[in-house]
Design a protein around this nucleic acid. Structure first.
Lengths: 192, 192, 192, 192
DNA sequence: TATGAATGAGGTTTCATTCAT
DNA sequence: GATGAATGAAACCTCATTCAT
């Protein structure tokens, strides 16, 4: 019986790719470098991925999936609005600062010869729970009704992304206190 | 007298490069493509730029410079706080939606084998006027004093970037009204 | 196990390079031509040599080394003066006529953008045994003491080089008899 | 009336070419470098020479011609054998040390894609007076008759070339005394 | 005639992919 | 499955030559 394709090896490849993206962007990804960083031979890469494009695409898909899973793992519709809000906000922030390479990869992927239309569509997925939370808050009369939900999403996500970006780049160190302040400000910005 | 080195040509090269970045990111910049898009021979590129790296670095520098200039052209310290705020906010937003390729380029440049340490430093420049506006507001007692200036910058810029990103990607169409709403919300978020 | 890096291939590359040098000098070395002449793909060249410069430098080093080895393989300090002289003289001559491409390559290498200072130093190496032979002869009172050793080296080597050059270019055919005459004349020219 | 092609400029071009050959050999000759070194525009080169090959070929021809002229300017068949020998020997040596770039150029030219068969033939020219001197000496019974004239030429020229080469490269400084010694040794080597 | 920017063929080098082991 | 040398298309870059001024 033939040995089974080694999932350990696939992970090594993904991690190696991510490492290279973090260090020098999508431009810096060379199949030989990926192989070396993953501790395997170049040829072996092609056993697990038909070609470079497929490696990149699969990595993107995997990251999206994992990120969603981590993000909404314990989220439940039964939380109070405020609980849900805090859960999502903190989750999102933690996600971005504990997986910086993923963030970079995804940003660069969107603007590359690799993107496929169908993958862009997926982008929405991450936002779905946020939208439903906001809708719920509006319906309950707790959130402002004069702002479009889209704008509210933008206000929420924009601050989260920028805050984590500053943190990841080392420009600022986001303390627990600062995080709290940001969270409260965001919450207040939504209140009716 | 021979044909004279043509600054018009440098612009054509920059524009061609930007076009390619918009279409397929930094990865898509191929010297031959740039030349063709600029309507010149490949060799001619090398009259104006020693090599690909220098072309990219110079483009980055130029974009940063131009963007700053446009952004703060008519800004004056004598404006009222509210006027200054609005000027900067609208300017920033317009900048990002009227120069999407520049935004993409700069984002990708930061994560590429091209970045130089000294260029990263420059990144702060764009933020300086924002910081000084916020400080002024705090001193006048108009803005909250319990938020660090950095956090306020993040809140402001984050929303601006995300809003323009959604606009540029076509996910939403930012109407005058929505812009107004976003602006007012941002302003209120800063008030003491 | 994959194919193993092949020292045979390095030789093929060196020989191909030498062939091109013989045919049209250093100017004629084109990486693609070298590859074709060596019967490999262009890219393969770069597995064995980082770039053209390294190929040329290594070839130079190899030729110098091999030439020295061949030249003084069986030379021994215990030979009589006359035996040693004859050994070196004939060895030098044979070397030059049996490896004409090497001679051309080395001559052209000295005057090229490829030379490195440290490699010029090596040039002396070949002459060392000649110098020690001449010193020995002088000490024994067999060779003239009124000529500097340097001048004697020049007289010896100059004739050898020119003779082989005429031979290699086809201007003359150096017979055994002529060789004998030249050797004896050289010997006499050194005698006290 | 049109201006006449400027011979001053042709000289500047030739000198610039020679300078480059001295510095980095035939490989180092780039038309743009020649132009810059000659203090003219690249395009101007092509007014004086149809192309690179013609520039090189003409330079070769000119050097050969000038060298011959200088060498045998005051030589006369009526000199005594010894006078003639000394005249030629010293002339040859001076020629080589006062025109090192020419020597290098000619050596490299012989082994390059530029050589033409017909130009190789010319190579003999420089040697003609030497040959006739040697023949005269043999007929007069002063020079050895057991050595072929060719071999004698080789012995003479070989030492001269090597001596000047060592001098030019800086390996030795040829004093008047050393020159005298070399000349006398060469003369003695020919005597019957 | 003089200029030097412009050209593009051709050289150098890289790298995704294949293939012999 | 695994390896990494080998491949060659395609990228980068140079430079002899042309050409608009």
């Amino acid at each position: 019986m033939a040995r089974i394709k080694d999932t350990t090896k696939v992970d090594a490849i993904f991690n190696a790719t991510l490492k290279l993206v973090r260090e020098e962007g999508l431009v810096g990804i060379k199949m030989s470098k990926v192989a070396k960083a993953a501790g395997i031979a170049t040829g072996t890469l092609y056993i697990y991925f038909k070609n470079k494009e497929e490696l990149i695409d699969n990595l993107y898909l995997k990251l999206k999936r994992e990120s969603s899973e981590r993000l909404f793992k314990d989220y439940s519709e039964s939380m109070t609005l405020r609980q849900g809000f805090e859960y999502i906000w903190r989750g999102y922030f933690n996600e971005m600062i504990s997986h910086p390479a993923e963030v970079i990869f995804i940003e660069q992927y969107y603007r590359s010869p690799f993107v496929k239309e169908e993958m862009l569509a997926e982008r929405q997925a991450l936002v779905v729970p946020v939208v439903s939370l906001l809708r719920k808050g509006k319906k309950e009369g707790i959130f402002r009704n004069d702002l479009s939900t889209n704008l509210m999403v933008v206000m929420l996500i924009g601050v989260l992304k920028e805050l984590s970006r500053w943190h990841n780049s080392g420009r600022i160190k986001v303390s627990e206190e600062m995080k709290e302040k940001a969270l409260v400000s965001a919450w207040r910005g939504l209140l009716a």
